[in-house]
């Protein structure tokens, strides 16, 4: 197997990267493109800290082969701030203290975005379910669930998008 060139769109920008065989999307995003909001808490698919959107779907970038992202539209947490303004979902995380060390936060926000994109008015149980692939060791989850509830509420109040 040889190194290979792939093209993909990341946060709206076209990228061409050379990947090694078996490189993961996480490697490409974190190491090649230096999008360091993409974290690597386990590399085993068990923590959700590497969550990104691939063509709008929530994906664990550590379990996604980079090759599979050829031609895809990838969004990382950095991609939410294209205009540099903080988006309501992020604001809800801030207001609800939904982070302490912040290591899980990027993955949490992306999982929450994926949920709200698909279901703008989730119940508490649906939020819990939507975040069930993401671990947090600091906050006890309650503030995170509240943040997503608040973001959903803000969505329904303004009719805006989460992010």
């Amino acid at each position: 197997m040889e190194d290979k060139l792939i093209r993909l769109t990341v946060n709206g920008r076209d990228e061409a990267v050379i990947i090694q065989p078996l490189a993961t999307l996480q490697d490409v995003l974190r190491d090649t493109l230096e999008l360091t909001a993409v974290k690597s808490g386990c590399g085993q698919g068990g923590c959700g800290s590497c969550s990104v959107l691939v063509d709008g779907e929530l994906r664990l970038s550590c379990l996604t082969l980079a090759e599979r992202a050829e031609g895809a539209e990838v969004t990382t947490l950095e991609g939410l701030n294209a205009t540099n303004a903080i988006v309501p979902l992020q604001q809800a995380f801030v207001e609800n203290y939904a982070a302490q060390c912040g290591y899980c936060t990027a993955g949490m926000v992306m999982a929450a975005k994926a949920l709200l994109d698909r279901n703008p008015a989730p119940s508490r149980d649906e939020i819990v379910e939507g975040l069930s692939g993401n671990l947090c060791r600091c906050t006890g989850f309650a503030p995170i669930v509240r943040a997503v509830q608040q973001a959903a509420q803000a969505l329904s109040d303004t009719g805006e998008e989460a992010s």
Binding site: Q44, V128, A142
Partner: peptide, 17 residues
């Protein structure tokens, strides 16, 4: 050696505190 086998509570196991 992983989070599948090292068990922790999830958001659904967290009561009102």
């Amino acid at each position: 050696v992983d989070f599948q086998n090292y068990l922790q509570p999830g958001a659904s196991e967290m009561p009102e505190v």
